[in-house]
Amino acid sequence: MNDDLVIAGRSFGSRFFVGTGKFSSNQAMLSAVEASGSELVTVALRRLDLDSENGENITDALDPEKYLILPNTSGAATAEEAVTIAKLAYAAGMPKWVKLEIHPDPRYLLPDPIETLKAAEILVKEGFTVMPYINADPVLAKRLEEVGTATVMPLGAPIGCNQGLQTKEMIGIIIEQATIPVVVDAGLGAPSHAAAAMEMGADAVLVNTALAAAGDPAAMGKAFAAATEAGRTAYLCGLAPKSQRAEASSPLTSFLK
């Protein structure tokens, strides 16, 4: 059975997405991406030197045939900045897709829900495929869906902290209510975290720090990809009963003759 993930009409065979920051070298990043089998890689536009010669940017190392190179607006503190960054990326020849990240708070880099909704509305109207990074807020997820974003990307925990699914309950509600793919982004520090998110029914996960900071990013990329697939398979076949708790109490259906 084909279980490709489809986002805005584009199919992805792998449900594991990778961020490209924090790696010790472009080579380390590339080998991690390759080993993971990922088909979607997000790149911070602010890191790119748009005037540079070939060979100096991350994007030059990535084969656009193999990967969707998803520009992100990391660094933007307002809707206006994010919209500008998205347009710049598109003008620089990148796909008309954007991972919308707006974090005015420089410590935890938590996303600003109000600016994100504002920017999403503008970018959708301008024809962008918008994938917003958000806190795990189910109402915000519905509001973004209504303005036409292609996915929502709730965080499992503050970005870069590797703490795993701290927002599990809220992500569960987002998944239950969503009509667009839910990509769990940020905070996933171990393959088991990715598996847990997928078991719950997340459509994909995105990981950066846990790969970049690992002793062997390529091996870790492989481990995450395997965990993502395992979680997906478990979700599709339905988890088996956890325990056989007795539930003895007075009968409630004895009124039926």
Binding site: M200, G201, G238, L252, L256
Partner: peptide, 30 residues
Amino acid sequence: LKSPFPKTGPETFALLSSPAASHYLEEMAQ
């Protein structure tokens, strides 16, 4: 009925309204 993540929605509804589920009314009622 024992699933740790009981799924909600129409698929679950269809299963719980099936002839097989009619033998589990007490469990469902609890």
